[in-house]
């Protein structure tokens, strides 16, 4: 049994084309990663650049970031509500030994590190003034990422 919130206007009416974007309201299967802000565009470019790393880029035998990690990074970026966090700084993007990717944002004394593992799973680390506050696995969802980035950009 499920409790649902029911809204009376359940049909989206398109009268001018402004209220209904092209793209079939989610009927699409392949989703390109929309570039909707400067920081997101630059971040995606930086992640893309990692795909051309050679094998053994760290001289310890590491492969370049796995395709799974690359796609997971795109998924991560897509899950950040860009209308809310339009002005995020561009993160530091780096490959991680073993085929993962690290994304790191710094806002004042707050630092948010996201480690995308070679298998696509993601771990987060929040630090304040250099002290670890919280860490753990990150489930990719707009709610989870909104919470993390709200903390990062909060001035309180």
């Amino acid at each position: 049994m499920t409790v649902v919130m029911e809204l009376p206007a359940t049909t989206l009416v398109s009268q001018s084309g402004e209220r209904v974007e092209a793209g079939g309201q989610g009927a699409q299967w392949t989703k390109g990663i929309a570039i909707s802000s400067r920081w997101a565009a630059e971040t995606v470019k930086r992640v893309l650049a990692l795909t051309s790393l050679p094998h053994d880029w760290d001289s310890y035998g590491s492969p370049p970031p796995s395709q799974v990690a690359i796609f997971a990074s795109y998924g991560l970026l897509n899950s950040i509500p860009k209308t809310v966090f339009e002005d995020l700084p561009i993160p530091f993007v780096a490959p991680v030994s073993g085929g993962g990717i690290q994304l790191e944002w710094n806002v004042g004394a707050r630092e948010l590190e996201l480690h995308v593992m070679p298998d696509g799973s993601t771990q987060f680390l929040k630090t304040l003034g250099g002290e670890a506050l919280d860490e753990g696995p990150l489930r990719l969802s707009p709610i989870a990422t909104r919470e993390l980035f709200a903390w990062l950009t909060s001035t309180r």
Partner: peptide, 27 residues
Amino acid sequence: ALIPVVEEFESQPAPEVNVKFSVVSEP
């Protein structure tokens, strides 16, 4: 599920905002 989308050409009255909660057996 996708929400229904309808192309309209006649002007429609703005829907009354009225939120209610209900219990359903199947999402």
